[in-house]
């Protein structure tokens, strides 16, 4: 018997009756939790709907664990209005903006890869004791991210909120299909501030 056959034989779904009462109860509890919690998001959902349904999207996960490329910056993110992702270098070059990054400096490319207008949605997700931000880009934004990251392997990519560097993860891999992984490090509060800042067009 193969492992797959053993798993199928042992699958609890096969040996369990439907638990319809529990499903109804869970549904009731979940819906009770929505009172007021999402009212503020209504206009956001409506405005992003058309773009979300029409665009071929890319999912960029800003993961949070174990990166040394996080430079903090939580003090000025509350009123964030401008989101940018720029390629960055560790050595200066003409026309590149110098920004403080930890104990050293990074040098930002003059043109951003994506900005707020390229974002369809941003959401905060837990990951262990830290938090992730899922950013969904428009088709055009996704294509530019793919192209930029593929040509920038091993080098940092700067994430800026309101002009301030909030994270500078190193690009670890070229995007395949519509997926990319960017590593950073955020608390819940930081992640929520950044997600909100990203969504302000």
């Amino acid at each position: 018997m193969t492992v797959q056959e053993m798993l199928r034989e042992a699958d609890p779904i096969r040996h369990e009756c439907a638990r319809e009462e529990q499903r109804v109860e869970i549904r009731r509890r979940v819906l009770a939790a929505t009172d007021g919690a999402r009212a503020r998001q209504r206009s956001r959902w409506a405005s992003s709907r058309v773009a979300a349904l029409a665009a071929a999207v890319i999912l960029v996960t800003i993961a949070l664990l174990g990166s040394r490329a996080w430079f903090g910056g939580d003090a000025t993110l509350l009123a964030a209005v401008r989101f940018e992702v720029r390629l960055a270098e560790t050595t200066p070059a003409p026309g590149f903006q110098q920004v403080k990054a930890g104990d050293g400096f990074l040098y930002l490319h003059p043109t951003p890869v994506v900005t707020n207008g390229d974002v369809v949605s941003a959401s905060v997700m837990p990951r262990g004791t830290t938090y992730e931000i899922d950013v969904v880009f428009t088709a055009a934004g996704a294509a530019r991210m793919r192209q930029a990251m593929a040509a920038h392997l091993g080098a940092p990519m700067a994430i800026l909120i309101d002009g301030q560097l909030v994270a500078a993860p190193v690009v670890r891999s070229a995007i395949k299909g519509d997926e990319a992984l960017i590593s950073g490090k955020f608390t819940k509060a930081q992640a929520e501030r950044i997600a909100k800042g990203i969504l302000i067009h």
Partner: peptide, 13 residues
């Protein structure tokens, strides 16, 4: 999982 969905932005589609 759904309680967290109630508190967060869930991407559309």
């Amino acid at each position: 999982t759904f309680l967290r969905a109630a508190r967060a932005h869930v991407p559309l589609g």
